[in-house]
Design a binder for these strands. Structure first.
Length: 269
DNA sequence: CCCGTGCCCTGGCGGC
DNA sequence: TGCCGCCAGGGCACGG
């Protein structure tokens, strides 16, 4: 499940391989993933050159000459660069490139999305205008003010990409463990210092995960994927029954707003 | 406006 | 061994 560190790793991997490639053709194998008018999506990128690749939150942005191609990988999306091999059944979108290679979007759960938007305005419209700053760019006091009246559990707020972007289920659990805050605490009951500590913890957790290339929980053989090493650093996520690395109390798994959640019942208050 | 729920999808796993 | 049913989960539409 790619979160900010995994998406960043994908961007850094794709960039040197795809910059200055021109898109010569496109094949859409799973039309539902395309969220822009399909005739526009299919024809407008042809002849345009990939000038840059970057991301906002968990969205990957391919900057072309006059438009941007925006992908969201959701849980299982990944890219492969291949020659003229036959299509895999999970490849849903194929870009043909001027070098003769193909860029393939692969997603066996079919949750990922693709948009094509004009380069001048894409930041002001959906989906990217819904994406808040990531933790390192979040103003601590402003964030506290923004969430302080909410009765929702802090975990739900940290997963809300409009308020702050980049955290998913894994890194929220790790962030709240590091900050010693229980995921079910309501935002309205948190002191400003606690909220500040949570954002600071998120910055640290994400920075370390980016440095290690993200987290690979399920092992896939991927030619162009995430071979992250942060899974070795996880303190609570997926650790149900194992001792808390701080106090030794067994980690428990609970459900918070529908999400599987790992917590140390002693350390996190 | 705010919040909770259901939906999308399919590989993998538990249960029998 | 094989099959069935359910779970996982990010973001969005929808309804209260």
């Amino acid at each position: 499940m790619p979160e900010l560190p995994e998406v960043e790793t994908v961007v850094q991997t794709l960039k040197p391989r795809l910059i200055k490639e021109t898109i010569t053709a496109m094949k859409i194998l799973f039309p539902k993933m395309v969220k822009t008018d399909s005739s526009v999506f299919q024809t407008k990128p042809i002849g345009q050159t990939i000038q840059d690749i970057h991301r906002k939150g968990k969205f990957i942005i391919f900057e072309l000459d006059t438009d941007v191609l925006i992908f969201h990988l959701r849980m299982e999306g990944k890219f492969f660069i291949k020659k003229d091999e036959p299509f895999d059944k999970h490849e849903h979108l194929v870009l043909y490139l001027s070098s003769g290679r193909t860029l393939r979007y692969h997603d066996f759960r079919k949750f990922g999305t693709a948009h094509l938007l004009p380069i001048e305005t894409y930041q002001e419209v959906s989906p990217l205008n819904q994406v808040g700053p990531e933790p390192k760019d979040t103003n601590l006091h402003q964030y506290y003010v923004r969430i302080k009246d909410s009765k929702r559990p802090i975990k739900a707020i940290l997963l809300d990409q409009t308020k702050m972007s980049g955290l998913g289920n894994i890194y929220v659990d790790e962030t709240l463990f590091q900050a010693r805050i229980h995921p079910e605490r309501k935002a309205v009951d948190l002191k400003e210092k606690e909220v500040v500590n949570i954002v600071l913890a998120a910055r640290e957790v994400l920075a370390k995960a980016v440095a290690l290339g993200g987290t690979t929980i399920r092992s896939y053989t991927s030619s162009l994927g995430v071979h992250g090493r942060f899974q070795n650093e996880l303190k609570v996520h997926t650790k149900a029954g194992e001792p808390c690395p701080v106090c030794g109390t067994p980690i428990i798994k609970i459900k918070v707003t529908g999400r599987g959640t790992y917590v140390c019942p002693k350390c996190q208050k």
